[in-house]
Design a protein around this nucleic acid. Structure first.
Length: 433
RNA sequence: GUCCCGUUCGUCUAGCCUGGUCAGGACACAGGAUUUUCAUUCCUGCAACAUGGGUUCGAAUCCCAUACGGGACGCCA
């Protein structure tokens, strides 16, 4: 039975690297029909942060990772908060005492290392040998146990079969192997996954780097499955020239032996591309739900909001930009960009608008198809390109040169709103010449 | 400084185990086509086996060295 765990320290943030480590553990557990344990390593009282566990729990849930044992769900190896496991740690300390493998110095308790090379059997890197040179502290002078000790005790007590963690722990593993041996407990399989490096500059991504926190992507309305898909691609590949694929498929294909050895640099451009791809592929009802939530309160006319959303899906690059992308639909007092106005002069904008106004004055059918036909006829009659009308009218109606498909925009705005806006554009002098 | 890990286009990667392909894909970038603009879509282009040695008829692929990058050396996790 494969039993893996994600063991974060509750710092108040959910780091993207931690999320990827959690993800690889989760993928491996699901691929192997094993058990995924969430264990909170909150042994450091000094660093205690209120609500920090919620940040991790919510981040995990947002990314669609469920755990079989841990906070909220329990399990037979609990408790799953290290701060509640003190008696277990003292029991294990006794084992080391009886074997004379510990000693006290400056009130702290040290573990006596063997000075022999330790084999770290790593599923990703192959066998790694490392010798621990110095005895190390397992209980602080205030009586609390430290990471190396609790980590090994809990992995042993919780019968963890595979330790999947960041490569920054590879050098620590010799300490851990010595402890497993001292407890006469089976040594788990290790799998040290590569680190995520900063987008630019040297070193691994840290909390302070922009884009390093899972909660930020949530606030920016990234699709969780897009972030998750991208994270899978950092250090692992589904091969066969595929990149964007459903999580079930990733679960099916994922295996530790296919994880890369080298570190990966975080690329927000690629993440954005994947996010856009996921947005385009959203079923309409889900797209509407997301859009409604982001545009909540922007208008009392929910049907109008929905119609606006529907014509945006094919153009929107991120939900982060949605509010700005559609703002003019809901604001009758938007401004016209002066600079763009000058570029429109060549189309004889006032004349074009008046011609269009004449054509729709008594128009009953204000549909996308009908409007396209009308603009086509106008262009032919006046021997200009359809683009001349489109550029001019879009600017007059929105103050922008970009937006959803033009005829869809007209149809959604409706005849009355279009008439009103075109008149304001002319009267305000926004459309010169 | 000591120890550990790594090194394929600018970035993420396939290929490496089981030597023989014009070293493939994606993002980004550049150009073109379509489109009413932006976007989308499509096409094209740009661009890599860190270096040196060895083994071999033949090395991205196996071995060694060097360089470079990353990590660990806490009473943090």
């Amino acid at each position: 039975m494969v039993r893996v765990r994600f063991a974060p320290s509750p710092t108040g943030f959910f780091h993207i690297g931690g999320a990827r480590t959690a993800l690889f553990n989760w993928l491996y557990a699901r691929h192997q029909n094993g058990v995924f344990v969430l264990r909170i390593e909150d042994t450091d009282r000094e660093r205690h942060v209120e609500g920090a566990i919620d940040v991790i729990v919510e981040g995990m849930e947002w990314l669609g990772m469920d755990w079989d044992e841990g906070p909220m769900v329990g399990g037979k190896f609990g408790p799953y908060l290290q701060s509640r496991r003190n008696t277990i740690y003292y029991d294990y300390l006794d084992i080391l005492c009886r074997k004379n493998l510990v000693y006290r110095r400056d009130e702290a308790i040290y573990f006596r290392v063997s000075h022999e090379p330790q084999l770290i059997n790593d599923l990703i890197r192959g066998p790694v040998y490392r010798t621990e040179e110095k005895d190390f502290v397992i209980f602080r002078s205030d009586g609390t146990p430290v990471f190396h000790f609790v980590n090994v005790v809990d992995d042993a007590a919780m019968e963890i079969s595979h330790v999947i963690r960041g490569e920054d722990h590879l050098s620590n593993s010799s300490k851990h192997v010595e402890l497993f041996k001292a407890f006469d407990m089976p040594i788990p399989q290790f799998a040290h996954i590569p680190l995520i490096l900063k987008t630019d500059g040297a070193g691994k991504m840290s909390k302070r780097d922009t884009g390093a926190l899972v909660e930020d992507y949530r606030k920016r309305h990234f699709l969780p499955e897009a972030l998750r898909n991208y994270l899978c691609l950092l250090g692992w590949s589904p091969k066969e020239d595929r990149e964007i694929l459903p999580i079930d498929e990733i679960v099916r294909l994922f295996d530790l032996c296919d994880v890369n050895k080298n570190n990966a640099r975080f690329d927000d451009k690629k993440l954005s591309y994947i996010n856009t791809t996921y947005i385009r592929a959203m079923p309409l009802d889900r797209f509407l739900n997301w859009g409604r939530a982001i545009l909540a309160g922007i208008s009392n006319d929910q049907q109008y909001v929905d119609h606006v959303l529907m014509i945006c899906q094919e153009k929107l690059r991120s939900f982060e930009e949605l509010k700005h992308f559609v703002s003019y639909f809901f604001d009758e007092h938007f401004d016209w960009d002066q600079k763009m106005q000058r570029d429109l002069g060549k189309y004889n904008p006032t004349q074009r608008i008046n011609e269009f106004l004449g054509a729709i004055e008594s128009l009953e059918d204000f549909s996308e198809q009908k409007l396209e036909k009308i603009v086509g006829e106008l262009a032919q009659t006046h021997a200009v390109k359809m683009g001349d009308y489109i550029h001019t009218l879009r600017f007059a109606l929105s103050g922008r040169t970009v937006g959803p498909s033009f005829y869809k925009m007209l149809a959604v705005m409706g005849r009355e709103r279009v008439l009103k806006r075109l008149k304001r554009a002319i009267e305000s002098g926004a459309i010169a010449c």
